[in-house]
Design a protein around this nucleic acid. Sequence first.
DNA 1: ACTGTTTATGTGTTCGAGCACATTTTTTTG
DNA 2: CAAAAAAATGTGCTCGAACACATAAACAGT
Lengths: 347, 347
Amino acid sequence: MKKYTIKDIAKLAGVSKGTVDRVIHKRGKVSQTALDKVTKLLEEIDYQPNLIARSLKNSKSYHICVIQPDPEIDPYWQPCTKGVNDAINEYKSFGITIDSYYFNHAETHSFLKVNEEVLKQSPDAVLITPVFHKESIEVIKKYNANNVIVSTINDPLELNGITSYVGQDLIQSGRIAARLMEMIVPKNKEILIIHLDEVFNNSIHMQLKEKGFKNYLKNLSNSNYNLKTYSLQQSDLDEKLHSLLNNPNNVSGIFVTTSKVYSVAKIVQDFPDLDIKIIGYDLLDENIKYIKNNAIDFLINQNPKHQSYLCITQLAEYFLFDKKIPKQKLLPIDIVNSENFDGYTND
Amino acid sequence: MKKYTIKDIAKLAGVSKGTVDRVIHKRGKVSQTALDKVTKLLEEIDYQPNLIARSLKNSKSYHICVIQPDPEIDPYWQPCTKGVNDAINEYKSFGITIDSYYFNHAETHSFLKVNEEVLKQSPDAVLITPVFHKESIEVIKKYNANNVIVSTINDPLELNGITSYVGQDLIQSGRIAARLMEMIVPKNKEILIIHLDEVFNNSIHMQLKEKGFKNYLKNLSNSNYNLKTYSLQQSDLDEKLHSLLNNPNNVSGIFVTTSKVYSVAKIVQDFPDLDIKIIGYDLLDENIKYIKNNAIDFLINQNPKHQSYLCITQLAEYFLFDKKIPKQKLLPIDIVNSENFDGYTND
DNA sequence: ACTGTTTATGTGTTCGAGCACATTTTTTTG
DNA sequence: CAAAAAAATGTGCTCGAACACATAAACAGT
């Protein structure tokens, strides 16, 4: 199983490597005879260009900018940064430079400002985390106009200006939570759906999760759960939840649609007599504390680290080896409990 | 953020690229003055050699042989083959050729014969799936003697002749199953542990899973489960399980330590009055059928496809870019139910 | 048949690292 | 101090693909 090079093929076909090259790249200026001969030969031996040589020849440097919420402000984004850093290290020896830009995920103007800055850099690609739905659409238009490739994670904007989306099916994510609830919460009990965030933002992932969750439970034949939805700021949670649980109630499960589930678990701990199951999102240190002692029953892992890492990997391999980028890459949705969280944190 | 090359450094240091090269590779024959100057410069600009150029220069072809049980005989190994095929396609343009060799997982001599064959090929590396514990150890010794790199998946042999193991923590795997059982099976009920396989083989993964499973349940304060273990050939299962369930019993959960869990689910379906929860392994088509309709409650995904793919990836990147191979890579242990299996099958 | 023009084919250089070999400089020795 | 030996440094080619440029063959028009 020898590896054929252009030179080999040229010799076999009795032409020069220039001609072979022209055939391969369909640059024309080749006689019918030569074209046939070379084409046939290429097929026969199933020629595979050496991607390393190709890449060396094209050896440019590429510049990718990452735009994400500041992990100092919201720790949810820390793993995202880790994924980016892994990618930086992996590709720095290949002539790919990656810069991170942070914005305050509570302020749209911060997001817009950072994007202005990045646009000035005119990078080859950007990876943006579109927590602001409307603003993102505008920003992406600008990138497209400047021929900057746009990849997104976390929040699927349905928009054709985007080259790649890496993330999860959020409706399905809600369904998974629902199926787990069904298994651990008795029939006819009350289940709370809590949207919890420090700030209100116009991203849609919480809504999609709720939709999937309700959708699953609605179609059950014999388990009439009583569902109640609350959209809360973190500051209102304490009062609201305490007043709910202090009064007579039938609550037996809580589904928190964000990574802030630990603050719910903390409050529920004050009511040891109520047997309340909790399902929420993501492997924050705070959450892991509660899943370890089973105060949280299940976490659903959105794997932000892997999302960002994979997204950059796709871009890098596109630049280096011309590997095509899938329009959408849906990652598996991991179910995490007290025994398997470890495997998802240490990679 | 310019990318420096050896030539750049040579110019900056006022020496030739040969000297720089000698410094980088510590080949000696460099004056102290030149050495200091170049070393300092290298540090200052944090020189990163262009791995693509390096790889091109070294451009050899590498040969990897994969030795695994015949997927035609045991479908469990089909995804393994898929992972290998993905790797073949990914790396064929990089001068890495990969050949697969199958053995009958019921016959040790078949395993030995295939290994003889592979040894004659003198490949650069082999990926073996050590279902036969003792025989594998012997075989690995031979590879080591011939300077063939040995990677393993699926079954951790504790042996220093192995360069890399990609797999899961099997004891933990059992603990995960136990935690799930605890959540869905009422206290004081009976739980069966069933080791089920077509043949008896001397691999140890079933034992490790059982160990983890029992270990978790034993340490529970208030849930006295009654555990019973059965080691069965597939042919004996039908009679044994029917007779068990036809008689008065308290069985409420079954943990099957292999991928053959579908045959247990099939039988349990005949007893709709008993509410028996089932947990088993792997996303075989047969198993997915049962998890879809909740006849199986949870599957634990050992991700054989990813295991084999990752293992080859490690070898390839070692050969191409000199990336070091971790001695052991433990993959996350995925919990799968009727709603998230999809994400693990389509990748 | 001889230019001029189009079309086809071949040659040589580049990318960056790595290494063999050639050349220069320094040191040793009679 | 010259010759020989050792040490240091520099030069030039290779890996395979890509492309610019040079050359050659084919064809058209007068």
